[in-house]
């Protein structure tokens, strides 16, 4: 696979902006368009751009399967933990108002929504990246 200096430079410049935009989409999901799933997909798209520009092996060295397994488990753990914590004061699953009423902290449900969205985003990002890794792996042949 040939390496083009223009593609490498432009994608090196563009990847942080895509990732910051993905984080904005995740955090802004409670107020407007977006959310955990879309932000996670946009974050995975930045990894796809890195794979296209630098090759699969280079990206895999920095973000390997150990990280993917750990992050996908971490995201769903955040989601399930906050959902189950809402059961303790007697609310339903993911009923943030029950925790807010128990602790007495104003606007706590907004932070909990953001935390749940971040969990969803982490899991979607790790899963999408692992799908792309498996699909892009040609078994040593040049693609």
């Amino acid at each position: 696979m040939r390496r083009n200096v223009i593609i490498k430079t432009v994608s090196r410049f563009l990847v942080p902006f895509i990732q910051v935009y993905a984080l904005y989409v995740i955090v802004h999901g409670a107020l407007g368009a977006g959310g955990g799933f879309q932000g996670g997909v946009v974050f995975a798209a930045s990894f796809i751009l890195m794979i296209i520009a630098f090759g699969l092996t280079c990206v895999r060295e920095r973000f390997n399967y150990k990280w993917i397994v750990m992050l996908s488990a971490l995201g769903i753990t955040i989601y399930a933990t906050i959902g189950l914590l809402c059961l303790i004061p007697g609310g339903n699953y993911l009923e943030y108002g029950s925790i807010e009423a128990l602790l007495g902290i104003p606007h706590l449900h907004g932070y909990l929504i953001d935390a749940v969205e971040i969990g969803i985003g982490i899991t979607v990002m790790a899963t999408m990246t692992s799908i792309i890794y498996d699909m892009g792996d040609t078994g040593g042949e040049s693609s």
Partner: peptide
């Protein structure tokens, strides 16, 4: 807008690459 965002990110982005 939410559905449009999902369509643009998943339909035009990830699916094409896959």
């Amino acid at each position: 807008v939410d559905v449009a965002f999902t369509e643009a990110a998943v339909g035009a982005g990830i699916t094409t690459v896959l």
